[in-house]
Nucleic acid binder design. Structure first.
Length: 589
RNA sequence: GGGGCCGUAGCUCAAUUGGAUAGAGUACCGGACUGUCGAUCCGGUGGUUACGGGUUCGAACCCCGUCGGCCUCGCCA
């Protein structure tokens, strides 16, 4: 019953050959006499012909065939003839005249047609994922994913990296995302935690002298899901000893170049490297979308001389006024402008000032608050041209950046400021090591507490924590963070200073991280690494709108798997064995 | 935890905005047909309008609640 070819393989050069194909019936066309079947496997489609004059019995069986039945067909490859070629199929020049037909399995009426599943409710697609993935586009996504994973392994293996697995069942360590916990049966009242990343293990591998490590690792984070976030997701995790930031970035460039090649895309020879400050100043965010310009500009000085009270008051309180000029935005209707104001509001903007530049002068909105000199200055500062619309936000600098960054991305998409297949990679570096958490009223790590500060900034750790820059770097594509990493702290003394700065006491550090602190004392080499989000990379490479399109069995926004209906309840006995008592009623039985 | 959009046949959608027996395409079943390729033609089966209340002479449509999906804010060191 073995196949001689896949269903996407046969060409004119195969004419005359005896073949056997296996696959799923995509469609059947019964002409009363002759019967055509389109046979599909993951490689393609081949037309099978059943001729009643060959065998009445086989022809009768062929007439029974229905969509998605699984069959095996033996036959001979023959040309279709010039007027019968199907240009839509790579195999369209040939067909297989069947000499044998075996029904391997029938199929119930399928809940939806795999060919048109793109239009089916996503929940239904996920419930019947095995049908959905017969759809060529879905198959292709998983094929590209596999090719990308192989490309990563190929590059790293060739460069002498070791693939090492780290445990899923590990110890809870504080900080970062909420962990999934696994109760211990053998040790009542204790829990394993699923790792949010293999961070500590890969550092310990470096201390262990493994030198160059990688892993395509699953990570687990119990946070709310989004189009680009799953509770379990995959990272290419890499760590190297005796390296600088440049070494890691070069290695990553090489990996990404091979990944892009595997996906039929291109990667720049030398991706742009942008300091964090420039990214936030000009794009309002640490992951700038460089497919289009439209930079943010600080217009505080100009606004100060205006009569716009909201702006002058904000400036008086130490805030800023920033803005941008959207090319061609003067055509927006009042309704569209209101929608942008509401959109900026979703991202925290209390207001959004606007004015249009038409026929050489400002018109409408907030133009009236600026005198001629002010208007000229705005125009110059924002690089505005006739036909543009100006948007401005007055707020604290972080809030203004956040709202304008979101607005900028929406305007870029709405105004079609870039081509749909544009790919703009860049590195963002020189991140602050720490940021002040208003919520916790303390300094917290921007990346993670094992990130090395720049040596020249070390002295500022106690005096001016916000000014300490980290040896960290993020790689960004089209405004999406593909991954990030850092050079780590390898000195126990520096690590202790960081913990102290973060308000983690010696006792707490000892209790939570003793294994790492111990390891750092036994010959830790300088080391650093990076983690790249595999799911996001595949999503970007295939142009998908959601991570779920590139994950075989993803979960819904509320963390449900429609296929298995996970999570589910367990028996009272299982709970007893785990020493677990349920205090809440389950949502469903 | 908050906000927005959505839920009608297996699937994709409609129902003149509160009006009569909830329709169409597709799938499925039956029939016809020897060159189709989303085959075509004829006929047929198929509905707790997500669920539970309410308003009304009358509800797919309006109101309240619940469940589910998507997007999003918070959250994701």
């Amino acid at each position: 019953m073995k196949r001689t070819h896949s269903c996407g393989q046969l060409r004119a050069s195969d004419i005359g050959g005896e073949v056997r194909l296996c696959g799923w019936v995509r469609s059947y066309r019964d002409h009363g006499g002759i019967v055509f079947v389109d046979l599909r496997d993951r490689d393609g489609i081949t037309q099978i012909v059943f001729d009643p004059t060959d065998s009445a019995e086989r022809h009768e069986l062929a007439r029974q065939l229905r969509a998605e039945w699984v069959i095996s067909v033996g036959g001979k490859v023959r040309p279709r003839g010039a007027d019968r070629v199907n240009p839509k199929l790579p195999t369209g020049e040939v067909e297989v005249i069947a000499t044998d037909l075996v029904v391997l399995n029938k199929a119930d009426t399928v809940p939806f047609d795999p060919e048109t599943a793109k239009d089916v409710a996503e929940e239904t697609r996920l419930k019947y994922r095995y049908i959905d993935m017969r759809r060529p586009e879905m198959t292709r996504n998983l094929v590209v994913r596999s090719k990308i994973a192989q490309a990563m392994r190929r590059v790293l293996d060739a460069r002498g990296f070791l693939e090492v697995e780290t445990p899923f069942m590990t110890r809870f360590t504080p900080g970062g995302a909420r962990n999934f916990l696994v109760p211990s049966r053998q040790h009542p009242g204790t829990f394993y935690a699923l790792p949010e990343s293999p961070q500590l293990f890969k550092q310990i591998l470096m201390i262990g002298g493994l030198d160059k490590y990688y892993q395509i690792a699953r990570c687990f984070r119990d946070e709310d899901l989004r189009a680009d976030r799953q509770m379990d997701f995959t990272q290419l995790d890499v760590e190297m000893a005796f390296v600088t930031e440049q070494n890691i970035m070069e290695m990553t460039n090489e990996v990404m170049r091979e990944v892009c090649t595997a996906a039929g895309k291109s990667f720049p020879d030398q991706p742009l490297i942008m300091p964090y400050k420039q990214a936030t100043d000009e794009y309002g965010i640490d992951r700038p979308d460089l497919r289009f310009e439209m930079k943010l500009r600080d217009v505080s000085e100009i606004a100060k001389a205006s009569t716009f009270k909201v702006m002058t008051d904000t400036l008086a309180k130490g805030g800023v006024v920033k803005g941008l000029a959207a090319p061609g935005g003067a055509k927006f209707t009042r309704k569209e402008i209101d929608a942008y104001i509401a959109y900026a509001g979703d991202f925290g903007a209390k207001g959004l000032a606007w004015t249009k530049l038409e026929n050489g002068q400002f018109a409408g909105g907030s133009a009236k608050f600026f005198d001629a000199a002010g208007q000229a200055a705005l125009r110059e500062r924002l690089g505005a041209n006739d036909g543009d619309i100006l948007f401005m936000v007055a707020d604290e600098v972080d809030a203004a950046n956040k709202a304008l960054a979101a607005l900028r991305c929406k305007l870029g998409a709405d105004l079609k400021l870039y081509s749909p297949d544009a790919m703009a990679f860049c590195w963002v570096t020189e991140f602050p090591l720490l940021e002040f958490s208003q919520q916790e009223q303390t300094w917290v790590s921007k990346h993670h507490p094992f990130t090395s500060p720049r040596p020249e900034d070390l002295d500022k750790l106690e005096t001016d924590p916000g000014a300490v820059l980290a040896r960290a770097y993020d790689i960004v594509l089209n405004g999406v963070e593909l991954g990030g990493g850092s050079i780590r702290i390898h000195s126990p003394e520096v690590q202790a200073r960081i913990f102290k700065r973060l308000g983690i006491s010696d006792e707490e550090a000892k209790e939570k991280f003793s294994f790492l602190l111990d390891a750092l004392r036994f010959g830790a080499p300088p080391h650093g690494g990076i983690a790249l989000g595999l799911d996001r990379i595949v999503m970007m490479m295939v142009g998908a709108e959601s991570l779920r399109e590139v994950i075989a069995f993803p979960k819904t926004a509320r963390g449900i798997c429609p296929l298995t209906e996970a999570p589910g309840t367990v028996s009272a006995r299982q709970l007893r064995e785990l020493h677990i008592a349920i205090t809440a009623k389950p949502e469903k039985s």
